[in-house]
Design a protein around this nucleic acid. Structure first.
Lengths: 117, 117
DNA sequence: AAAGCATGACGTAAATATACGACATAGTTT
DNA sequence: AAACTATGTCGTATATTTACGTCATGCTTT
């Protein structure tokens, strides 16, 4: 991301980082949770629920949409957002696999700081 | 994080965002995977494996350490890093719960863009 | 003690992220 | 058509991130 030497990293690593970045702000985490809670996709109500200005929330929504985690659709005057459950499911697997490997590794340094390299 | 109105968000949301942010860069994802792969905790070898300058890698290591995902320990001349499997396990559960809720929600907008708000 | 080596801390430049107010756009209602 | 409303885009100020070179520190080895 940003201006990293992206070419030098795995596609997988970049995708994981990409999604992680999308969730790297409490407001965006809150938005996803909010959309998950309410079945129906909300519009500007999201802005009302968050302690941020409407424009800022809109910006966060665009970021989530850019990554593909949510979808927006115009319904007359309002815009409805909802989770992209397909992508979320795929992302879930990626994170699951990632954490599985990470937690599987034995703690070499030990819980109490005993490194035995 | 950053300069968000953190007080307005859940502790849970902030923690999740905090970890997500730590993983929001492919280099840091790579570091965690590298530490997971090699049982023994590595030191400056990490820098050699990544396509970044040694100082930049050190900076990424400090970030991961600040969040608590990894641990560093001085062993004479070198410094050994290893995963904090305890925290990783906890974080894993948080992400699992988060994605469980997110994927459980029915896609109201539909896979083919049919919003029925 | 002196020379060497691995690391982190510091300083810095350039790119991003965050937050918002002011505008532009487009559908709704009167 | 005119007034209204919900949204996104744009511009902007400030804070952070990223990447690196240089320097300081602290063991190690000679």
């Amino acid at each position: 991301m940003t201006y990293a030497k992206t070419a030098a990293f795995t596609h997988e690593q970049q995708q994981l980082a990409r999604v992680a970045k999308a969730l790297a702000h409490p407001a965006r985490v809150a938005i996803v949770q909010l959309l998950a809670a309410r079945q129906t996709c909300i519009s500007g109500d999201i802005a009302a629920e968050l302690p941020l200005s409407r424009t800022t929330v809109s910006q966060h929504l665009q970021e989530l949409k850019a990554v593909g985690l949510i979808r927006g659709e115009i319904d007359g005057l309002t815009v409805c957002y909802c989770l992209n459950t397909e992508l979320l499911a795929r992302v879930q697997q990626q994170f699951t696999a990632f954490f599985a490997l990470a937690t599987a590794a034995a703690p070499v340094c030990g819980p109490t700081e005993d490194c035995a390299c």
